[in-house]
Design a binder for these strands. Sequence first.
DNA 1: AAAGGTATGTTATAGTGTATCGTTCGCGTG
DNA 2: CACGCGAACGATACACTATAACATACCTTT
Lengths: 167, 167
Amino acid sequence: MGFDDGEPVFADKGHDHAQCKARAISGAEAICLSLDLRLTDLRRQVLEIIWSSHKPIGAYDILESLSAQRGRVAPPTVYRALDFLVSHGIVHRIETLNAFVGCREPGPDHDGQFLICSDCGVAAELNDPQMMAAVVRSIRHAGFQPVRQTIEVSGLCPECLEQSRGE
Amino acid sequence: MGFDDGEPVFADKGHDHAQCKARAISGAEAICLSLDLRLTDLRRQVLEIIWSSHKPIGAYDILESLSAQRGRVAPPTVYRALDFLVSHGIVHRIETLNAFVGCREPGPDHDGQFLICSDCGVAAELNDPQMMAAVVRSIRHAGFQPVRQTIEVSGLCPECLEQSRGE
DNA sequence: AAAGGTATGTTATAGTGTATCGTTCGCGTG
DNA sequence: CACGCGAACGATACACTATAACATACCTTT
Ligand SMILES: [Zn+2]
Ligand SMILES: [Zn+2]
Ligand SMILES: [Zn+2]
Ligand SMILES: [Zn+2]
């Protein structure tokens, strides 16, 4: 299930998040290098802000954080950077939250499936081929040609679930 | 796959849509009767507007249409009616479109899966137990407790697909 | 009739996302 | 180097989506 990197779907509380972020930046650099894209300062800063946690962050929260770094910034600046990052599979948009989250395995043309904790706010990305296959199979029966899929499940992450059982 | 009522997932172009609408209203009436809820004039009018087609409609388009019927109407009026209809499973919200669409099999506590044509705008609702099972199975492996699922797939409906092949 | 809850009206404002235009930057070409 | 071109960015204004807060009307029960 999920990625084949052996990592848990939900990073535990004490994990080395600096490493998460560093790996994400490296991945973005690799993509831009291979596709001849430009990871400008602005885009890199936005990506770093998004990776400041595993919780999806809204465009205007990004804007605020960005303004602290480079002075007054207007919405289009943020949205353009987001468009770039999302269109190249470096960041995902969470439709149910109007928010953005970093991709663990960046690359073109993948939609992922997201588990979003309604308690603590963290989001985890799956990329389960069996789930995707089940969805596509069901859809094809309807004569529908899928292009883009949005799968977002809200609920309780393992930690918050554990906590709720304790009470 | 889908509902067990034998109807096609996508209603064809020449179908009797007045019947779709009438059945939806009847369903809503039945729900309200059984749960002691009030399907007021306002709520019924909003439901009828939503059922004017199989295309998801935005809140402000509903507002405009509603204003034509009962004079100036403010956003909260529409959103409150929508909250009622959505919370009782009579209408679904399409997250990827910020729009609302009528439910074919209204009732509490179901999320459905939606196929949305990016060409003509129609949306069809599935309720495929196999797909849901596959999603839940994959999710449980991550130690996640699902509460609400949002599955929306955009692409081409059978008619638009046929048309695009012809060109 | 009085009371209390539900539904609606009304105004204002919050939150999210784009259109448009002008300027700057990076880079290849003559 | 000067030029030209497209991509990226800055800045202003605006469009679209949704809710807060408070007042009023309605409906049901006592
Ligand atoms: Zn981390
Ligand atoms: Zn949590
Ligand atoms: Zn119909
Ligand atoms: Zn279509």
